[in-house]
């Protein structure tokens, strides 16, 4: 069987019930999607199937014959980052980086489907994506920014509202 992976047709030899995540990582050596739980609980393996976000760990590859699969590698490169990728850098939305591929893919799908900068809508759309480092705020801020802006300064990170810096002690 065949899938179109990041725009390139790839032949798959793994058995049809093999989870897409394992096919990507072990057969095709495309490793941005992470095996965070392999049970649909964390979102780190999220990829786009025909433009819709899907947990690759729960997707049997046999159900994808002829489908277009997009992983984080297909969304932008270090020389040509997508708006969401730029926003994540500019808003300091990644700490350890392990949940980031799933977050960026899901955020891209949300915005591609016409998602707005409404923070509750973003929280709703990415519910089920676990991040243990950031506390989510900067991720939500990054996605909200990418809803209205396509270019971000990558040499500096965004000032954040609700933060005050005081110099010196009493």
């Amino acid at each position: 069987m065949n899938i179109t992976l990041n725009g390139v047709s790839r032949q798959i030899s793994s058995p049809p019930l093999t989870p897409l995540l394992r096919v990507l990582r072990n057969e095709l050596n495309v490793v941005s999607a992470k095996a965070g739980c392999e049970a649909g609980g964390c979102g780190a393996c999220t990829v786009l199937v025909d433009g819709r976000p899907q947990r690759s760990c729960l997707t049997a590859v046999g159900s994808l014959n002829g489908a277009a699969v997009t992983t984080l590698e297909g969304l932008g490169t270090s020389e040509n980052l997508s708006a969401v990728q730029q926003a994540f850098v500019h808003h300091y939305a990644a700490q350890c980086g392990f949940c980031t591929p799933g977050m960026v893919v899901a955020a891209t799908a949300y915005l591609d489907a016409g998602g707005s900068d409404d923070k509750e809508a973003i929280q709703e759309a990415l519910g089920g994506h676990v991040c243990r480092c950031t506390g989510y705020l900067k991720i939500v801020n990054a996605i909200a920014a990418a809803a209205t802006q396509s270019e971000f300064d990558l040499t500096i990170t965004a000032e954040e509202p609700n933060v005050v810096v005081k110099t010196g002690g009493r």
Binding site: V31, S32, A33, T71, L72, E73, G76, T77, S78, L81, Q85, Q86, F88, V89, Y92, A94, G97, T100, P101, V104, L154
Partner: peptide, 9 residues
């Protein structure tokens, strides 16, 4: 490592 993180590299 920000760009590495957002590109999956």
């Amino acid at each position: 490592d920000g760009v590495g993180h957002v590109t999956g590299q």
